[in-house]
């Protein structure tokens, strides 16, 4: 009886273990088959000469270059806002907070981590409604608003990875600091932060990946299908994930659908590379 149960369990484990890589292979295989033929320079720049677009900002009409730039700007803005805030909060929770403050803050941040991304988008949307009713009647969804809402989305990841990186440092480091007569802040600044930098950086990279791939938030806060290169912080913009979503729903020709698959390949490569970079940092940490 027990023997049979064992055999069944092993069989099921094999089945699921085979299914998972098979699924991954199917997804990437499908994307490669449909998208690879369109993965050419024209995918990025359409009919515009690439150099003219890159150096002189010539408008690109049926390429994904504006969407690439949009995602780049978006990610840069998110990093600018989220990294200082997230890392500082992580340091506070790891080093300074105690008792009730720590409990209350961690509860709020855990809750923020669990909130569906669409609610961050809805929050941004509500913020615009609120601004219009109160003191900025012209307020509209834009690049800056998306970056703000995405900041809320990635903040919990940054905080918990920073906190974990600092809290998992060996006690010997703290003792060293104390024996050198360092103040608490000097200890953090000169010893703990440099030692936990790889862990913090890998958290930052993962957060950037999350911001680059999210569609639900930007869908509600200012991304559009045809905005060209983003002009200002308060302008509408294009982004890679939304471009894929839009083409999948509204494609007019097989060529546009092929472009959707090629764009998906580009985005997949981007998030995959970010994951690899983060893993490499973490691996370096484990060896030390």
């Amino acid at each position: 009886m027990a023997d049979r149960q064992e055999k069944l369990s092993v069989a099921f484990a094999w089945l699921s273990a085979l299914l998972v890589p098979a699924l991954l292979a199917m997804v990437t295989g499908f994307l490669l088959r449909r998208g690879l033929p369109s993965l050419q320079v024209a995918l990025w720049f359409g009919d515009t000469p690439p150099l003219a677009a890159l150096l002189h900002g010539a408008p690109v009409f049926d390429g994904i270059w504006p969407a690439c730039l949009g995602t780049l700007y978006l990610v840069a803005l998110v990093a600018l806002m989220a990294v200082p805030l997230g890392v500082a909060s992580g340091i506070f929770l790891a080093e300074y907070a105690g008792g009730r403050t720590k409990l209350a803050f961690s509860f709020c941040i855990e809750l923020l981590a669990g909130i569906p991304s669409i609610l961050m988008g809805l929050f941004g949307f509500a913020l615009i409604l609120f601004l219009r009713r109160s003191f900025a009647p012209e307020a509209n969804t834009c690049l800056l608003l998306s970056a703000f809402c995405l900041t809320l989305l990635v903040l919990p990841y940054l905080i918990s990875s920073t906190r974990l990186a600092i809290e998992s440092l060996p006690d010997a480091l703290r003792l060293t600091g104390a024996s050198l007569g360092l103040s608490h802040w000097q200890l953090i600044r000169r010893i703990l932060l440099p030692a936990s930098a790889p862990g913090i950086f890998s958290g930052v990279i993962l957060a950037i990946g999350r911001a680059a791939e999210d569609t639900a938030v930007i869908l509600m806060t200012g991304v559009v299908a045809n905005a060209g290169t983003p002009g200002s912080l308060t302008a509408k913009y294009e982004a890679l994930p939304f471009h894929i979503y839009y083409l999948a729903a509204e494609y007019q020709s097989p060529a546009e659908l092929a472009q959707a698959f090629a764009t998906a390949l580009v985005l997949l490569a981007l998030t995959g590379l970010l994951l690899l970079a983060a893993r490499r940092l973490q691996a370096g940490l484990e060896i030390k």
Partner: peptide, 18 residues
């Protein structure tokens, strides 16, 4: 881990056409 890094919209796209 690689599966976890695949963007949601990519899963949506692949599923919509397969």
């Amino acid at each position: 881990r690689l599966m976890s890094s695949v963007p949601t919209v990519v899963y949506g796209l692949v599923a919509a056409f397969s």
